[in-house]
Amino acid sequence: MTESRPHALFSFGTLKEAHVQTALFGRTVPAAPAALAGYATRPLKITDPDVIAASGLDVHLTLECRLGSVVEGVVLRLTDAELAAADAYEVDDYVRRRVLLASGESAWAYLDADPLRPAARIVIAGDSIAYGRCDPRGGWAARLAARHIAVNERDHRVFNLAVPGSTLAEVAEQTPALLAARRPDTLLIAAGINDSAVPASAPHETPDGLAGRLTDSLASLAATARDRGARLVVLGPLWLDESRTADYEGLRFTEARALTLRETLRAWCTEHHVDHIDLWAPLHSRPDLLTDGIHPSPEGHETLYRHLTSD
């Protein structure tokens, strides 16, 4: 019986070497030449002695986004066990994520564990919090954009497409048509709490399929990112001050439903190997950093920005 090899893994570094494969898998594995467009490589210092012993090198390569560049490598065809062995081999500086190869095939690759560090062209989509409401400086997104562009003004871009009031479902529906001209390598989805809202007159915790709606929207956004060759990064949600949100313009926002949203995002992203940056802790139990119980004040946005960019 032919052994099933359901996993395509793009390797641009030590995993393509025969002696590394033998050390990890007990043999060399099927491989074919492949290319990854929109990326370049940079060196990464390795300190894990087991990884150094297996590869014979204390400097490996990692990827960074660069429009117009191409990284040559190979596609390895792996079994479940071999993919698990590859995961164990990679150090904490890497995470396994989906990429779109020049051939059009979707494959796994080991990318920088910090999704913002290698990014070049970032699209932000979300609601009024990502838009920067209640902050004349434009919120955490504007601060992130200023920092990002300053690193490399020629090649770095940030496009904030957030629309106040948007749910995740609306973001998933509206975003695909906006990406072609912006050519993002990173799609930053700020999942606020609009999905968790219920009418102020409704029973407090009526089951309504919130988790199912969220996962459908996330799957759609993942497909959009994959088709564009972009890395999907999901942010949020924020803590809210329930004492001020019992009737917010005819809607009610509760901490319990926000926590359901948070846990759904975290579980889905973990299961599907998608980056999730949790924004709950920075403002937790800090009502002084919220202008109305939901939207961060300028100081609150500064706190979120520092959380996002902390090394």
Results as ranks from 00 to 15, higher is better:
residue 113 A to K: 02
residue 260 T to F: 00
residue 74 V to H: 14
residue 46 I to N: 03
residue 163 V to Q: 14
residue 272 H to Y: 13
residue 65 C to V: 01
residue 242 E to N: 05
residue 173 E to T: 15
residue 263 E to I: 02
residue 248 Y to P: 01
residue 122 I to S: 06
residue 36 L to P: 07
residue 258 A to K: 01
residue 246 A to K: 10
residue 152 N to Y: 04
residue 301 H to C: 02
residue 171 V to H: 01
residue 275 D to R: 05
residue 21 Q to C: 09
residue 115 P to G: 04
residue 295 H to L: 10
residue 275 D to C: 02
residue 203 P to N: 10
residue 138 G to R: 11
residue 57 L to D: 14
residue 92 D to H: 10
residue 209 G to E: 11
residue 176 P to V: 06
residue 293 G to M: 13
residue 227 D to I: 03
residue 247 D to R: 11
residue 162 A to Q: 09
residue 155 D to N: 13
residue 167 T to L: 10
residue 282 P to K: 10
residue 156 H to L: 09
residue 235 L to C: 07
residue 246 A to W: 03
residue 132 G to A: 05
residue 192 G to H: 09
residue 182 R to T: 06
residue 253 F to W: 12
residue 19 H to D: 14
residue 246 A to M: 11
residue 284 H to Y: 08
residue 153 E to I: 00
residue 126 G to K: 09
residue 210 L to D: 10
residue 77 R to T: 08
residue 214 L to I: 15
residue 273 H to I: 00
residue 278 D to A: 13
residue 6 P to Q: 12
residue 154 R to A: 14
residue 55 S to W: 07
residue 82 E to P: 03
residue 101 L to W: 07
residue 111 L to V: 14
residue 67 L to R: 13
residue 126 G to T: 10
residue 180 A to I: 01
residue 249 E to S: 09
residue 154 R to H: 10
residue 281 A to I: 03
residue 14 T to I: 08
